[in-house]
Design a protein around this nucleic acid. Structure first.
Lengths: 203, 203
DNA sequence: TGTACATCAGTGAACGCGCGTTCACTGATGTAC
DNA sequence: TGTACATCAGTGAACGCGCGTTCACTGATGTAC
């Protein structure tokens, strides 16, 4: 006759992280519409009001999830760079591959941070990690910038190509099923990018 | 003392279109989260149950809006193509500019169709217009494909670059405010793309 | 042209649901002495 | 080591809200004769 109470979560300082984990999970399972404070709380094993203590409101949670997204994004590129060859082309390929790694291992976060959804741009973590991602790109592109060319031109060229490829890889299924069999690998696009950037060298 | 009733909408066969118009409006004003059958009904001046008659459910409305998005997308490219010069490079530039026209005049639809959200892929209009957009790309790219190269490689190269640029143009503000002053025009990226595609010609 | 009838297009009430947020509260943890 | 107290971290009930969907209905429109 004794009631079985749900196991109460031990207080160990990890709840905030667990709530973000739960949010990422929800995003993956149900898309951006399915994200809610109450569901995250349930997944983390706490009452529905607990998230209010760690995040001021729903935007606080969204922003924390986006910050996590940017953090993983930067880490994916850094990991590839750490294992890259020394040439400029090697390093360029490395950040592109890191970008693709991220998009394919965390499609839900990739879509979320580029969804156009509003985040709290005053949040410190959010600012830190979103700036980090861009600075990795900037530093890797710097040696590739020709004389008399603004560096943004090369950065945005590279960023656009890799970003567009990643996004289209994710949404192509519904657009045009026949493409699934013949979808080119990113390296084949990279070959063309190299031709544009390293016009003098043989390829 | 006579009550002022809301003006009842005249029955003229345009409600379905008006509901889609309202949906696009909502998307622009409140983002993808703000879309709802009830709000569209209110904006179109009918009862909240009226949309149920024209769209089976909320996905029916989403899909109709996405179909509208693809239709406008194709039209933007076609308009530019109709006014383009005859060379392959002119036509390539034309679809790129059409793509950018679309993204800047209908950012809400652009983000919506590429949001990763699920649509009813069995819907005839949806299939028609989403296939149309890709076939315009394919036809324009066909003359640019080198010997021994799969055409998808060039299509995806072009598509990725222009898509990534459009998307990043929309979300850059929150990522890196300093970029706002130095954001390169698409034509400067197109110059590099031309160098990769028309390697033999002077540029 | 008039009339009877069928179908179409939309109504309005009702349903249950999950949500964000607030608030008084409580029990666990940390700290000062 | 013990005790008193403050603060922290989370609880659970309550609130009002907007939502999608269903359903019996009605009034307008179209059609056959």
């Amino acid at each position: 006759m004794t009631e079985v109470l749900p196991p109460r979560r031990k207080r160990d300082g990890t709840l905030k992280t667990s709530l973000i984990d739960a949010g990422v999970d929800l995003l993956r399972k149900r898309g951006a519409d399915g994200l809610s404070l109450r569901e995250c709380a349930a997944m983390a094993g706490v009452s529905h009001a607990a998230p209010g203590y760690h995040f001021k409101n729903i935007m606080g949670l969204s922003t924390a999830i986006a910050a996590r997204g940017y953090k993983l994004f930067s880490e994916a590129m850094t990991t590839r760079l750490d294992n890259a060859g020394p040439s400029d082309a090697d390093r360029l390929a490395a950040i592109c591959h890191g970008y693709m790694d991220y998009a394919s291992s965390h499609p839900e976060l990739f879509l979320f941070i580029f969804s156009g959804q509003k985040f709290n741009e005053a949040d410190d973590e959010f600012r830190l990690y979103s700036a980090k991602a861009y600075s990795i790109l900037r530093e890797t592109c710097a040696p590739l910038v020709p004389e008399n060319t603004p560096c943004e031109e090369i950065e945005v060229l590279v960023w656009s190509l890799v970003h567009g490829y990643a996004q289209l890889s994710m949404t192509r299924k519904k657009d045009n099923p026949q493409l699934n069999r013949t979808w080119p690998a990113f390296d084949s696009l990279l070959k063309h990018l190299n031709r544009a950037l390293f016009a003098a060298s043989a390829n």
